[in-house]
């Protein structure tokens, strides 16, 4: 990939017409909608978008209305990557036959359900085959569209309607699947994490992903006030805190080489800046039960796991820097 860095300015971004338009039916404080809007601000030319079934598909395409000013297709829940594969194959064939001249980028959006769980096979297959597309995971850590059920992306301790906090079970019992590392393990050129609070970082990563000739994967944390039982006005605040607590560090893996992105790099350089996870968890209703005496063990486990993963990430980045 090119080493060119994109400097997106606020003015430039404000002036670029939206490709994900207002008027959609997302809830107040919905970060996935913000993510879509930001991602579409970083497109570099003709683009076809495909989406998995989910909140963002539903809020943006209620017939006869649409929020998309670019060509857009939805087929099913588990199919975002397979759609991208089909579009890629069609574009290649039409180009070869001289029926298409220009390059067209492909972006596939899916939530955590459509990525970690039901869509994982199609994603892994499409990535293995090397189709040229950017897969954007907007991770709100649960099946929010169907009413807040647990997914492979739901963190430990979180209460959902299928992992409720009960008298004997304290919410979800398992950790989040390390989806981004799994995508790095596919051996693709570009994998990154992003948070909409750090919007320039997010836009730059979208553009880098589009520049790649082949599959690229972008994991964006996208708070959902309905599902997280948090205040709509706090959504972006949580996008920031997740990074500051190292619950969701920002990094890129370019050709498998891990490197921290600036917001996380600053924490690595000044570890005293790393905030305790409770600052992030407190205030999210899905973790309310953890702040009672019996929840302490889970809180400790979340901190331990976060520290462990952060240490491992730092090690990966250091090792890459050495080589």
């Amino acid at each position: 990939m090119t080493t060119q860095e994109w400097k997106f300015t606020a003015k430039e971004i404000a002036e670029k017409p939206d490709q994900f338009l207002s008027g959609h039916r997302a809830c107040a404080g919905c970060v996935p909608a913000t993510v879509l809007k930001l991602v579409m601000k970083a497109t570099r030319g003709p683009t076809i978008v495909t989406e998995a079934t989910g909140c963002m598909e539903v809020v943006s395409s209620i017939y006869p209305y649409t929020s998309w000013s670019v060509p857009w297709i939805h087929t099913a829940f588990e199919t975002a990557a397979a759609n991208a594969a089909g579009i890629d194959a069609a574009l290649k064939a039409l180009k070869r036959k001289g029926q298409l001249k220009e390059h067209v980028d492909i972006i596939a959006f899916a939530g955590d359900g459509g990525t970690y769980d039901i869509g994982f096979q199609a994603l892994s297959g499409a990535v293995e085959r090397g189709h040229d597309f950017l897969f954007v995971l907007y991770d709100n850590e649960g099946y929010m569209n169907t009413g807040i059920q647990r997914s492979g992306g739901t963190p430990i301790g979180a209460a959902t309607t299928t992992s409720p906090a009960g008298k004997v079970v304290p919410g979800k019992l398992q950790h989040k699947k390390p989806i981004t590392d799994i995508m790095v393990a596919h051996g693709i050129e570009y994998v990154a994490t992003a948070s909409p609070y750090y919007w320039k970082d997010l836009l730059t990563k979208v553009r880098k992903g589009l520049e790649v000739e082949g599959p690229a994967f972008l994991h964006v944390l996208a708070p959902c006030p309905r599902g997280w039982r948090s205040e709509p006005a706090d959504s972006i605040y949580y996008s920031k805190l997740a990074v500051e607590t190292c619950v969701f560090p920002l990094w890129e893996a370019i050709n498998g080489q891990y490197q921290l992105s600036t917001p996380s790099k600053l924490i690595a350089l000044a570890p005293q800046k790393k905030k305790p996870v409770t600052e992030y968890l407190n205030g999210q209703g899905r973790y309310r039960h953890l702040f009672k005496p019996q929840g302490k063990a889970i809180l400790d486990e979340i901190q331990r796991w976060t520290d462990d993963r952060w240490a491992k990430l730092l090690k990966k980045c250091v090792e890459e820097q050495k080589t």
Binding site: I73, A76, T79, N83, A89, A122, R129
Partner: peptide
Amino acid sequence: VCTESEHSAITACIAASATGA
């Protein structure tokens, strides 16, 4: 395109056909 399942095979066909192929 040699897909990883029939589900993705037909899906890729749907999207390819919608793209004009």
